[in-house]
Design a protein around this nucleic acid. Structure first.
Length: 321
DNA sequence: CGGCCCCGATGTCTTGCTTC
DNA sequence: GAAGCAAGACATCGGGGCCG
């Protein structure tokens, strides 16, 4: 399946000698180009004007994407990269593993030079905005996520939020994705708020307790409704279970419920078999039941697949409760 | 329309094998 | 033994389908 081809890594990803990576130590490759070419190591460095015209390195055409919206990750990457670069000679004890991880993530998430990889083309279904690429859902939201949260909280429709993101040249999410992302963002924000509460860094404010009581009342009403629905389902199950246990019977859920209530109240009609001196009609009813049972037994004798009968003869057409 | 569930795609991490 | 590679397991994402 989609195996990460990240096993061939760019030389710049090689950890520095101080990287605490016990398993895989890489040979430190020369990171600075030979001096005779006058090529600066960092892309942002000025080319030697004595050797290269000032127009070299100037942008050509329009960028396929606005760089800013990837800011969340790209900004982190460049900041970390800068930090790493600045402290490169200082044998910094800062978490270089984290830097490598961030770089990897940024490489995975940020678009390549032309803005699209092969699979990205498939995903860029519509014009406008950047194609939606997998982006981590964290409480540290980027501006796209912040906009989603703001508009969602303001009760905007998902299609409107999706359109707004496109109009602003942000990520081109499918409206369905807005809903999914909003649900996940809510979740991580709740976790974050729990942490803040634990650390006493946030509070319940005035009016929150009243809303809590209102929410509990609404939830209670919903739970009560669900209980009633489940109780109703119970008698459908009872009717089916009865038929499953004793195939000759076939009473409805209402009949089962009424019989149960009558038995509880002691008002249930006696069975024909319990009548002490049955008349002809009662005898006929008893015989009719015996005949039906005999017919079922007879039919069952024709198959040796009792297990199959037990399992499927009725349950295969059981309703979904 | 939006919530929920699910699936395919893809990234990340770990482990074992191969090569030098 | 170190380094690189391949493969599997797992996590997470976007988005489709269903349903209230």
């Amino acid at each position: 399946m989609g195996r990460a081809s990240g096993t061939t890594k760019a030389p710049s990803e090689s950890p520095s000698p101080v990287t605490p990576q016990p398993k895989r130590k890489r040979v430190e490759k020369p990171r600075v180009a030979p001096a005779e070419y006058d090529i600066p190591y960092f892309a942002h460095m000025q080319l030697n004007p004595a050797r290269y015209p000032v127009t070299v390195g100037a942008p050509v055409g329009q960028p396929p994407f606005e760089p800013a919206p990837y800011g969340g990750h790209r900004a982190k990457k460049s900041m970390k990269e800068d930090a790493e670069d600045d402290s490169e000679e200082e044998d910094s004890e800062s978490s270089e593993e984290e830097v490598v991880s961030l770089k990897r993530k940024a490489l995975a998430i940020s678009p390549p030079h032309n803005g699209f990889s092969g699979s990205d083309y498939k995903k860029a279904k519509m014009a406008g905005g950047r194609p939606a690429l997998a982006k981590k859902v964290t409480a540290q939201m980027d501006s796209d996520d912040e906009l989603i949260v703001q508009m969602k909280q303001a009760r905007y429709q998902e299609k409107d939020i999706a359109q707004r993101l496109i109009d602003e040249g942000r990520t081109h999410y499918h409206p369905k994705t807005i809903g999914t992302r909003w649900a996940r963002l809510k979740k991580v924000m709740q976790v974050r708020n729990d942490e803040l509460l634990d650390q006493d860094l946030t509070d319940w404010h005035e009016g929150d307790d009243e809303v809590l009581a209102e929410a509990i009342a609404k939830a209670d009403a919903e739970v009560e409704k669900l209980k009633q629905e489940i109780a109703a389902k119970k008698w459908r199950m009872v009717a089916d279970k009865m038929k499953s246990i004793k195939p000759v019977v076939n009473f409805s859920q209402n009949a089962c419920r009424k019989r149960h209530e009558d038995l509880e109240a002691g008002t249930a009609k006696p069975t024909p078999e319990s009548v002490p001196d049955p008349d002809d009609e009662v005898k006929a009813r008893i015989q009719s039941r015996l005949d039906k049972e005999e017919a079922i037994k007879k039919a069952a004798r024709f198959t040796t697949h009792h297990q199959n009968l037990d399992n499927n003869a009725w349950t295969s057409r059981m309703r979904q409760y």
